[in-house]
Amino acid sequence: MQWTWFHKFASPKWFYQITGKILPFLAWLTFFLLVIGLVLGLGYAPADAKQGNSFRIIYIHVPSNFLALAGYFLMAIAGAIGLIWRIKLAFWVMKCAAPIGIVFTLVGLLTGSLWGKPTWGSFWVWDARGTSMLILLFLYVGVYSLGRSFHSANSGEKASAFLAIVGTVNIPIIYKSVDWWFTLHQRATIKFTSAPSMHPDMFYPLLIMIVGFYLLYAVVLMLAVRAEILVRERKTNWVRTLVLK
């Protein structure tokens, strides 16, 4: 088996060039998907029988929570690839994924609490899912700040890659324990009324938004990694000619 493709992918120059070609197309696709999803979701989807119009926040809330969790695994896997095959590009992907993940987790938490106010009567309820997302935010912040507290950027990246992997091992345990804690301290007044199946008119906009958010994540991550490549490879010839051109 030829492994040249693998090493080609690990080259920052190749990554910079190929993403430069993909990005415009991807950015427009993301834009259209998000616009279509938002218009359908906010304007045309029927109002929920119990929650009225406040349910429409799921078109932001659910996709950003998806990406918050998926982004953590992407970050940890990128860190593991960097550690195992010593690929600097993978470390940069990991480094750039941390702040993006923080933003998506924050958006998920904020939209959740905005939805909680009319639905549950308070901005924050210590339920299992909300608490798990809060701890996910803390894990992200740890990886982010550990990577930026070393004098040499390389050792900071290695340390935060290890932390991301340790966090990944812990995520199922944390999630299960929080779940268990919630059932122990459950209040009777709060009920999770989720319909077993959504109406298709509600569901398709959500699906479009989820795909759109995945693409948005990819676009933002590519932009961040491209910027990181330019900074870290600033002494190479190809970056010099590119910038001075």
Partner: peptide, 26 residues
Amino acid sequence: LTVPTKDKSFLLALIILPLYVPIIIF
């Protein structure tokens, strides 16, 4: 993880406290 860094006490708490969640719960 933080052996070579300076002023590590807060950094250490920051990275380890989320991992302590299951232990404190149980």
